[in-house]
């Protein structure tokens, strides 16, 4: 700014400014060391070796329930996979298509409630799992059509409002057919009798599926169109890209996985209430993990989910403290590291 700012409390500003500058300077030597390391690593690993590495990681993860019966580890890993799937779904809509949804928890909750309904009706668990995704996709079409009419921050607000509407809807008990009810703040129980190990594999397969989807998206024309819209909507339109259509496609793809995961988690945990499966904190979690790792990257959201779950398990078992941490991270990350952890690894960002 050209005009001197001597507003009150300006000492605070100056302190803040010099802190920022100092932090940036301190990172400088680190940057050059890191750059050299990354270049070296990249040169040594061919694409095939990288793919092999990932397959090995997945195989090791698949073997975990065969090796250990420890419920705690299995539970933590299941929750980590769930977080990673949600974060990756958020990444598809926000990181690739540039649509900042605050309401993807709606699809998670719908998946969970469709699982309740179908399990009570005696439907096979595998079908129930898929049905969660189908319900989410079916609902995401009208929801998407409504929300993509709004742009920028208005899109975020519309999705937030829609998700809250679903939560409020399920707080009340509704009759389904003549025998069953669904919803109500006292929650519902689900029993299907799968072992934890089985659930572990289900969640791991979901994670692999969402990662493959994102990876494919990144290399496909569809993903390119998404990124084009994210970067410049007007320009994308002038290139003949049907912006509304692709936004809707991104919305629907990113709604599918939260639906399946919601359905799976409802069956795994055995008890759900509207306050938990439609909680705005789930949307917040998706965002923080995806942003922490790095939006618009395939590996970032998984890294973010891993780091945050580790932090949570170590320091913040009390839910208020956990959410406090999430809020704090959202502010700090977006101010100082908007590219996420993976951006630290990129060569020459300076």
């Amino acid at each position: 700014m050209t005009v001197a700012d001597d507003g009150f409390l300006s000492t605070f500003e100056r302190t803040g400014r010099s802190l920022r500058a100092r932090a940036s300077d301190a990172l400088d030597p680190l940057r050059s060391v890191r750059n050299r390391a990354v270049v070296a690593l990249d040169e040594r690993l061919s694409a095939r070796a990288k793919a092999g590495l990932w397959v090995a990681v997945v195989l090791v993860l698949f073997a975990v329930p065969l090796v250990t019966e420890n419920e705690f580890y299995i539970d933590v890993l299941i929750r980590m996979f769930q977080l990673a799937v949600l974060a990756q779904s958020f990444n598809i809509i926000a990181g690739y298509a540039g649509l900042f949804s605050l309401g993807h928890v709606a699809f998670y909750g719908l998946g969970a409630y469709s699982a309740v309904l179908l399990t009570n009706a005696g439907v096979d668990p595998v079908l129930t799992l898929l049905a969660g995704g189908v319900v989410a996709v079916a609902v995401s079409v009208p929801v998407g059509v409504i929300s993509i009419t709004a742009t920028g921050i208005y899109f975020a607000l519309v999705t937030l409002a829609l998700a809250e509407m679903f939560r409020i809807f399920f707080l009340e008990q509704w009759e389904v057919g003549s025998l069953m009810t669904i919803g109500g703040s006292s929650g519902e129980f689900i029993r299907i009798g799968w072992s934890d190990g089985l659930f572990y594999w289900v969640f791991l397969m979901l994670l692999v599926a969402v990662v493959l989807t994102t990876y494919h998206l990144k290399r496909s024309m569809l993903g390119l169109n998404f990124e084009m819209i994210r970067e410049d909507e007007t320009l994308a339109q002038s290139f003949g890209i049907d912006v509304r259509k692709y936004k809707l496609v991104a919305f629907v793809i990113s709604a599918f996985f939260p639906g399946v995961v919601g359905s799976a988690f409802a069956m795994y945990s055995g008890f759900i209430i509207p306050g938990s499966v439609f909680s705005v904190n789930i949307s917040v979690g998706m965002q923080v993990q995806a942003i922490l790792g790095g939006l618009g990257t395939v590996f970032g959201p998984i890294l973010g989910a891993f780091v945050l779950l580790t932090l949570e398990e170590t320091f913040a078992t009390f839910s208020n403290v956990k959410n406090l941490l999430y809020g704090f991270l959202m502010i700090v990350l977006m101010l100082y590291l908007p590219g996420g952890l993976l951006s630290l690894l990129k060569r020459s960002d300076r």
Binding site: G152, N281, Q287, N323, M334, L335
Partner: peptide, 27 residues
């Protein structure tokens, strides 16, 4: 502490920052 530093940031970042502040303060 927050608002002044994000005035030049893209809208996307501003949503995250102020929404994060909302979650932080609520808790």
């Amino acid at each position: 502490t927050i608002i002044k530093w994000m005035l030049q940031a893209p809208v996307f970042n501003q949503i995250v920052i102020t929404f994060g502040a909302l979650i932080l303060v609520e808790n």
